[in-house]
Write a protein that binds this DNA or RNA. Structure first.
Length: 272
DNA sequence: CTGTTAACCTGAGTGC
DNA sequence: TGCACTCAGGTTAACA
Protein backbone atom coordinates (compact mmCIF):
# COMPACT_ATOMS: atom_id res chain seq x y z
CA UNK A 1 0.00 0.00 0.00
CA UNK A 2 1.93 2.88 1.30
CA UNK A 3 4.62 4.71 -0.59
CA UNK A 4 5.97 8.11 0.34
CA UNK A 5 2.76 10.12 -0.28
CA UNK A 6 0.64 7.76 1.78
CA UNK A 7 3.14 7.67 4.66
CA UNK A 8 3.48 11.45 4.54
CA UNK A 9 -0.32 11.76 4.65
CA UNK A 10 -0.39 9.65 7.81
CA UNK A 11 2.49 11.65 9.28
CA UNK A 12 0.64 14.92 8.85
CA UNK A 13 -2.51 13.55 10.43
CA UNK A 14 -0.63 12.05 13.38
CA UNK A 15 1.20 15.34 13.83
CA UNK A 16 -2.11 17.17 14.23
CA UNK A 17 -3.44 14.52 16.57
CA UNK A 18 -0.41 14.71 18.87
CA UNK A 19 -0.46 18.49 18.72
CA UNK A 20 -3.92 18.41 20.29
CA UNK A 21 -2.77 15.98 22.97
CA UNK A 22 0.81 14.69 22.98
CA UNK A 23 0.37 12.04 25.67
CA UNK A 24 0.06 8.29 25.16
CA UNK A 25 -1.14 6.84 28.47
CA UNK A 26 -0.02 3.32 27.64
CA UNK A 27 0.84 1.01 24.76
CA UNK A 28 -0.76 -2.40 24.32
CA UNK A 29 -0.25 -5.24 21.86
CA UNK A 30 -2.77 -7.86 20.83
CA UNK A 31 0.04 -10.09 19.55
CA UNK A 32 3.75 -9.71 20.08
CA UNK A 33 5.06 -9.85 16.51
CA UNK A 34 4.53 -8.26 13.13
CA UNK A 35 7.36 -8.72 10.64
CA UNK A 36 9.58 -8.46 13.71
CA UNK A 37 8.92 -9.07 17.39
CA UNK A 38 7.79 -5.81 18.99
CA UNK A 39 9.64 -4.39 22.04
CA UNK A 40 8.04 -5.76 25.20
CA UNK A 41 9.66 -3.04 27.31
CA UNK A 42 7.20 -0.51 25.81
CA UNK A 43 4.30 -2.27 27.49
CA UNK A 44 5.60 -1.13 30.88
CA UNK A 45 5.86 2.54 29.98
CA UNK A 46 3.28 5.04 31.25
CA UNK A 47 2.65 8.51 29.81
CA UNK A 48 4.79 8.76 26.71
CA UNK A 49 4.88 12.37 25.55
CA UNK A 50 5.20 12.68 21.77
CA UNK A 51 7.22 15.73 20.76
CA UNK A 52 7.47 15.38 16.97
CA UNK A 53 6.14 13.15 14.21
CA UNK A 54 8.79 12.67 11.51
CA UNK A 55 9.05 10.66 8.33
CA UNK A 56 12.20 9.12 6.86
CA UNK A 57 11.68 7.12 3.68
CA UNK A 58 8.54 5.04 4.37
CA UNK A 59 9.09 5.03 8.13
CA UNK A 60 7.22 7.11 10.68
CA UNK A 61 9.25 8.27 13.68
CA UNK A 62 7.49 9.58 16.80
CA UNK A 63 10.05 11.27 18.99
CA UNK A 64 9.33 11.51 22.72
CA UNK A 65 10.14 13.89 25.55
CA UNK A 66 12.54 11.39 27.11
CA UNK A 67 14.33 11.21 23.75
CA UNK A 68 13.48 7.69 22.69
CA UNK A 69 11.37 7.26 19.57
CA UNK A 70 8.59 5.03 18.33
CA UNK A 71 9.29 3.63 14.86
CA UNK A 72 6.42 2.58 12.61
CA UNK A 73 6.49 1.11 9.12
CA UNK A 74 3.19 0.36 7.39
CA UNK A 75 4.44 -2.52 5.25
CA UNK A 76 1.87 -3.34 2.56
CA UNK A 77 -1.36 -3.16 4.51
CA UNK A 78 -0.66 -1.18 7.66
CA UNK A 79 -2.94 1.66 8.80
CA UNK A 80 -3.20 3.88 11.86
CA UNK A 81 -6.69 4.96 12.86
CA UNK A 82 -8.09 7.12 15.60
CA UNK A 83 -11.05 5.36 17.23
CA UNK A 84 -13.10 6.05 20.38
CA UNK A 85 -11.69 4.76 23.67
CA UNK A 86 -12.95 1.24 24.30
CA UNK A 87 -13.80 0.45 20.67
CA UNK A 88 -14.16 -3.17 19.62
CA UNK A 89 -10.98 -4.33 17.88
CA UNK A 90 -10.69 -6.62 14.87
CA UNK A 91 -8.44 -9.64 14.37
CA UNK A 92 -5.78 -7.57 12.58
CA UNK A 93 -5.64 -4.70 15.08
CA UNK A 94 -2.23 -5.40 16.60
CA UNK A 95 -1.08 -2.27 18.44
CA UNK A 96 -3.07 0.25 20.48
CA UNK A 97 -1.71 3.61 21.63
CA UNK A 98 -4.14 4.36 24.43
CA UNK A 99 -4.86 8.03 25.00
CA UNK A 100 -7.33 9.94 27.13
CA UNK A 101 -9.31 11.23 24.17
CA UNK A 102 -8.95 8.33 21.72
CA UNK A 103 -7.12 5.14 20.83
CA UNK A 104 -4.68 5.06 17.94
CA UNK A 105 -4.95 1.56 16.49
CA UNK A 106 -2.46 -0.06 14.12
CA UNK A 107 -4.19 -2.53 11.81
CA UNK A 108 -2.09 -4.68 9.48
CA UNK A 109 -3.65 -7.85 8.01
CA UNK A 110 -0.49 -9.08 6.29
CA UNK A 111 1.79 -8.09 9.16
CA UNK A 112 4.59 -6.83 6.92
CA UNK A 113 4.73 -3.69 9.05
CA UNK A 114 7.11 -2.81 11.86
CA UNK A 115 6.55 -1.29 15.28
CA UNK A 116 9.72 -0.62 17.21
CA UNK A 117 11.41 1.53 19.80
CA UNK A 118 14.71 3.38 19.36
CA UNK A 119 16.62 4.40 22.46
CA UNK A 120 17.38 8.02 23.27
CA UNK A 121 18.37 10.20 20.40
CA UNK A 122 19.76 7.61 18.03
CA UNK A 123 16.90 6.47 15.86
CA UNK A 124 18.85 7.48 12.76
CA UNK A 125 21.59 5.08 13.80
CA UNK A 126 19.31 2.05 13.64
CA UNK A 127 20.53 -0.43 11.06
CA UNK A 128 17.32 -0.07 9.08
CA UNK A 129 18.05 3.61 8.35
CA UNK A 130 21.72 3.38 7.47
CA UNK A 131 21.56 2.28 3.85
CA UNK A 132 18.83 4.72 2.79
CA UNK A 133 19.40 7.17 -0.06
CA UNK A 134 18.28 10.81 -0.22
CA UNK A 135 14.70 11.97 0.23
CA UNK A 136 13.24 12.59 -3.24
CA UNK A 137 11.82 15.97 -2.21
CA UNK A 138 15.13 17.15 -0.74
CA UNK A 139 17.94 19.12 -2.34
CA UNK A 140 20.09 15.98 -2.34
CA UNK A 141 18.07 14.35 -5.12
CA UNK A 142 19.48 16.06 -8.20
CA UNK A 143 19.70 14.98 -11.88
CA UNK A 144 23.49 14.82 -11.57
CA UNK A 145 23.27 12.54 -8.52
CA UNK A 146 20.73 10.29 -10.26
CA UNK A 147 22.84 10.17 -13.42
CA UNK A 148 25.98 9.14 -11.52
CA UNK A 149 24.10 6.48 -9.52
CA UNK A 150 22.39 5.02 -12.58
CA UNK A 151 25.72 4.74 -14.37
CA UNK A 152 26.90 2.30 -11.67
CA UNK A 153 23.94 -0.04 -12.13
CA UNK A 154 22.94 -2.74 -14.57
CA UNK A 155 19.30 -3.13 -13.62
CA UNK A 156 16.31 -1.69 -15.46
CA UNK A 157 15.83 1.97 -14.55
CA UNK A 158 12.44 1.11 -12.98
CA UNK A 159 14.08 -1.35 -10.60
CA UNK A 160 16.75 1.24 -9.73
CA UNK A 161 14.12 3.88 -8.98
CA UNK A 162 12.52 1.55 -6.44
CA UNK A 163 15.84 0.84 -4.73
CA UNK A 164 15.69 2.67 -1.38
CA UNK A 165 19.49 2.96 -1.39
CA UNK A 166 19.29 5.14 -4.52
CA UNK A 167 16.31 7.28 -3.52
CA UNK A 168 13.72 6.59 -0.82
CA UNK A 169 9.95 6.59 -0.89
CA UNK A 170 9.27 5.48 -4.44
CA UNK A 171 7.42 2.16 -4.60
CA UNK A 172 5.76 0.13 -7.29
CA UNK A 173 2.88 2.47 -8.16
CA UNK A 174 4.83 5.71 -8.30
CA UNK A 175 7.81 4.17 -10.15
CA UNK A 176 5.55 3.37 -13.12
CA UNK A 177 3.77 6.73 -12.93
CA UNK A 178 7.01 8.72 -12.71
CA UNK A 179 8.59 7.00 -15.72
CA UNK A 180 5.43 7.50 -17.76
CA UNK A 181 5.38 11.23 -17.13
CA UNK A 182 9.15 11.44 -17.68
CA UNK A 183 8.76 9.64 -21.02
CA UNK A 184 11.28 6.96 -20.05
CA UNK A 185 10.79 3.26 -20.84
CA UNK A 186 10.94 1.33 -17.53
CA UNK A 187 12.94 -1.54 -19.02
CA UNK A 188 15.72 0.75 -20.21
CA UNK A 189 19.08 -0.18 -18.75
CA UNK A 190 20.07 2.26 -16.00
CA UNK A 191 23.43 2.84 -17.71
CA UNK A 192 21.74 4.11 -20.84
CA UNK A 193 19.67 6.82 -19.15
CA UNK A 194 20.94 10.22 -20.35
CA UNK A 195 21.43 13.24 -18.12
CA UNK A 196 18.56 14.91 -19.99
CA UNK A 197 16.29 12.01 -19.01
CA UNK A 198 17.53 12.21 -15.42
CA UNK A 199 16.39 15.83 -15.41
CA UNK A 200 12.94 14.66 -16.44
CA UNK A 201 12.86 11.81 -13.92
CA UNK A 202 13.84 14.05 -10.99
CA UNK A 203 11.36 16.72 -12.05
CA UNK A 204 8.47 14.28 -12.47
CA UNK A 205 9.31 12.40 -9.28
CA UNK A 206 9.00 15.61 -7.29
CA UNK A 207 5.93 16.74 -9.19
CA UNK A 208 4.04 13.46 -8.80
CA UNK A 209 4.94 12.85 -5.16
CA UNK A 210 3.96 16.42 -4.28
CA UNK A 211 0.65 16.14 -6.12
CA UNK A 212 -0.08 12.81 -4.49
CA UNK A 213 0.62 14.21 -1.01
CA UNK A 214 -1.75 17.10 -1.75
CA UNK A 215 -4.45 14.59 -2.69
CA UNK A 216 -3.92 12.46 0.40
CA UNK A 217 -2.13 9.61 -1.39
CA UNK A 218 -3.50 6.74 -3.47
CA UNK A 219 -6.22 4.56 -1.96
CA UNK A 220 -6.17 1.27 -3.84
CA UNK A 221 -7.91 -1.42 -1.82
CA UNK A 222 -7.25 -0.65 1.79
CA UNK A 223 -5.37 2.58 2.32
CA UNK A 224 -7.02 5.36 4.25
CA UNK A 225 -5.87 8.10 6.56
CA UNK A 226 -5.98 8.19 10.34
CA UNK A 227 -9.44 9.73 10.27
CA UNK A 228 -10.67 7.11 7.79
CA UNK A 229 -10.69 9.41 4.76
CA UNK A 230 -9.41 7.92 1.50
CA UNK A 231 -6.83 9.60 -0.70
CA UNK A 232 -7.69 10.39 -4.30
CA UNK A 233 -4.43 10.15 -6.25
CA UNK A 234 -5.48 6.75 -7.61
CA UNK A 235 -7.77 8.73 -9.93
CA UNK A 236 -4.65 10.36 -11.40
CA UNK A 237 -2.91 7.09 -12.26
CA UNK A 238 -1.98 7.12 -15.94
CA UNK A 239 -0.56 3.61 -16.28
CA UNK A 240 -0.57 1.71 -12.98
CA UNK A 241 -3.06 -1.18 -13.04
CA UNK A 242 -4.25 -0.09 -16.51
CA UNK A 243 -2.89 -2.99 -18.58
CA UNK A 244 -4.64 -3.20 -21.98
CA UNK A 245 -6.42 0.11 -21.49
CA UNK A 246 -5.72 3.08 -23.79
CA UNK A 247 -2.91 5.50 -22.97
CA UNK A 248 -4.32 8.81 -21.71
CA UNK A 249 -2.08 10.66 -24.20
CA UNK A 250 -2.00 8.55 -27.38
CA UNK A 251 -4.57 5.75 -26.84
CA UNK A 252 -1.97 3.01 -27.38
CA UNK A 253 -2.67 -0.03 -25.18
CA UNK A 254 -0.81 0.09 -21.85
CA UNK A 255 1.57 -2.83 -21.42
CA UNK A 256 2.55 -4.74 -18.30
CA UNK A 257 5.59 -6.87 -17.52
CA UNK A 258 7.23 -8.07 -14.31
CA UNK A 259 10.44 -6.19 -13.51
CA UNK A 260 12.29 -6.73 -10.28
CA UNK A 261 9.53 -9.08 -9.20
CA UNK A 262 6.76 -6.45 -9.52
CA UNK A 263 4.22 -5.67 -12.22
CA UNK A 264 5.41 -2.69 -14.24
CA UNK A 265 3.15 -0.63 -16.50
CA UNK A 266 4.06 1.63 -19.41
CA UNK A 267 2.98 3.07 -22.74
CA UNK A 268 5.19 1.70 -25.54
CA UNK A 269 4.45 4.79 -27.65
CA UNK A 270 5.03 7.59 -25.12
CA UNK A 271 8.02 6.07 -23.32
CA UNK A 272 11.37 5.64 -25.11
C1' DC B 1 30.85 -7.47 -4.76
C1' DT B 2 26.07 -7.22 -7.87
C1' DG B 3 21.70 -8.79 -9.30
C1' DT B 4 17.63 -11.80 -8.95
C1' DT B 5 14.25 -14.70 -6.59
C1' DA B 6 11.71 -16.39 -2.77
C1' DA B 7 9.74 -15.77 1.43
C1' DC B 8 7.17 -13.46 4.89
C1' DC B 9 1.26 -13.10 5.53
C1' DT B 10 -3.90 -12.50 4.64
C1' DG B 11 -7.63 -11.21 1.66
C1' DA B 12 -9.71 -10.11 -2.71
C1' DG B 13 -10.61 -11.42 -7.15
C1' DT B 14 -11.12 -14.86 -11.01
C1' DG B 15 -12.30 -19.04 -13.35
C1' DC B 16 -14.16 -23.54 -13.22
C1' DT C 1 -21.26 -22.02 -3.07
C1' DG C 2 -16.94 -24.01 -3.03
C1' DC C 3 -12.35 -24.76 -4.38
C1' DA C 4 -7.88 -23.75 -6.53
C1' DC C 5 -5.26 -20.39 -8.03
C1' DT C 6 -3.13 -15.63 -8.74
C1' DC C 7 -2.03 -11.29 -7.22
C1' DA C 8 -1.42 -7.15 -4.03
C1' DG C 9 1.29 -0.63 -2.11
C1' DG C 10 7.45 -3.54 1.05
C1' DT C 11 11.59 -5.44 2.64
C1' DT C 12 15.26 -8.63 3.02
C1' DA C 13 17.48 -13.28 3.44
C1' DA C 14 19.18 -16.55 0.47
C1' DC C 15 20.91 -17.64 -3.70
C1' DA C 16 23.49 -17.50 -8.41
Amino acid sequence: MPELPEVETVRRELEQIFLQDPVIEKVSYRRKDLREVMPLSLLLVRKLKITRVLRRAKYLILTTANHGALISHLGMTGTWRSVPVGSDLGPHDHVVLERKRDWLVFRDPRRFGIFDWAEAGDWEDQVRFRHLGPEPLSAGFTPEYLFQELKKRKTAVKVALMDQALVVGVGNIYASEILFRAGVKPGLSSRKVSLAKCVQIVEKTQEILSQAITLGGSSMSDFYGVSGVEGSFQNQHSVYDRSGEPCVICATRIRVRVMGGRSTYWCPQCQK
